[in-house]
């Protein structure tokens, strides 16, 4: 192990919070709460995202019975909000729920129903208000370095560019922009949305980003618990590969066995 990289103490810092896992998982789209519980536990994640919704009085089960609040940090999202005002209101409402033990929030302000791409203008507007309100704002954003800088300047202690559209599983469509974002900002970069399978997660981490947020790729897999385990290992492997430094790519072969002492 390299002396100048302490891989055992490689922690993810988001604002004033520290985490050892670099994988954040969503809780949506699972076939049932038991599978959700088993999958988020298998993922090794410490942060899980949840929505804030009207209580369904006819529901037979309560999601809360399946979430260990001592083990996970719950991150309220603003999924479905199309304006800064709605997103801010949703999170102010979430603040009244004691299940949220931190001021961390996932901010998304959707601009288009088909692509679920964010509305940049409303996103920045909401981020500024929420930062002033004292939230640790984690914005889901386009893979745009200029926007990333603006959100950092607005006070977001992390930026979360998409790899590809939410739930698409297309993987990382513009790795170069993600690398530029990583260079452009000094806050951590967490890739949020689009990862389809373990190799996507690994390749994304190899770019040097600080973490990944995954929901559909795990929840929608044939075996969500198995995929959660795969994602956990992929994120770890990708991070370690990044820290360890990959070899440069060459066009021609370079023998790995020495020629000296060859007999024939």
């Amino acid at each position: 192990m390299s002396e100048n990289i302490n891989k055992d103490k490689d922690v993810l810092k988001i604002g004033k919070y520290f985490f050892s896992s670099r994988l954040i998982v969503g809780t949506g789209k699972y076939p049932d709460f038991k599978t959700m519980k088993d999958s988020i536990e298998a993922s090794g994640s410490e942060i899980i995202t949840v929505a804030v919704r009207r209580i369904d009085f006819s529901a037979k089960e309560n999601m809360l019975s399946y979430v260990d609040l001592d083990r996970f940090t719950l991150l309220p999202n603003t999924a479905g909000c199309y304006t800064a005002d709605d997103a801010v209101k949703t999170l102010l409402l979430a603040r009244e729920l004691p299940v949220f033990k931190t001021d961390m929030v996932k901010l998304e302000v959707i601009g288009d129903e088909k692509t679920l791409y964010p509305d940049n203008e409303e996103l920045i507007k909401a981020a500024r208000i929420l930062v002033k309100e004292g939230f640790t704002v984690m914005p889901y954003m386009m893979d745009d370095p200029v926007l990333a800088k603006k959100l950092e300047d607005a006070g977001c202690p992390v930026v979360m560019p998409l790899a590809s559209p939410i739930g698409s599983g297309l993987g990382i469509r513009n790795p170069y922009n993600i690398k530029i974002i990583k260079e452009a900002v000094s806050v951590p970069v967490i890739v949020d949305a689009g990862v389809g399978t373990a190799s996507d997660a690994c390749k994304t981490m190899e770019l040097g980003v600080d973490g990944i947020l995954i929901n559909t790729a795990i929840a929608g897999a044939k075996d969500p618990v198995g995929m959660a385990l795969a994602m956990k290992d992929a994120v770890k492997a990708g991070r370690l590969a990044y820290l360890s430094g990959r070899i440069p790519m060459k066009l021609y072969a370079q023998a790995s066995t020495q020629m000296e002492g060859i007999v024939f």
């Binding site: 969503g26 949840v50 809360l64 309220p76």
Partner: peptide, 10 residues
């Protein structure tokens, strides 16, 4: 009145 709580989400 809106009574809200957490729900599954990504």
């Amino acid at each position: 009145l809106d009574l809200v709580s957490i729900a599954p989400g990504g």
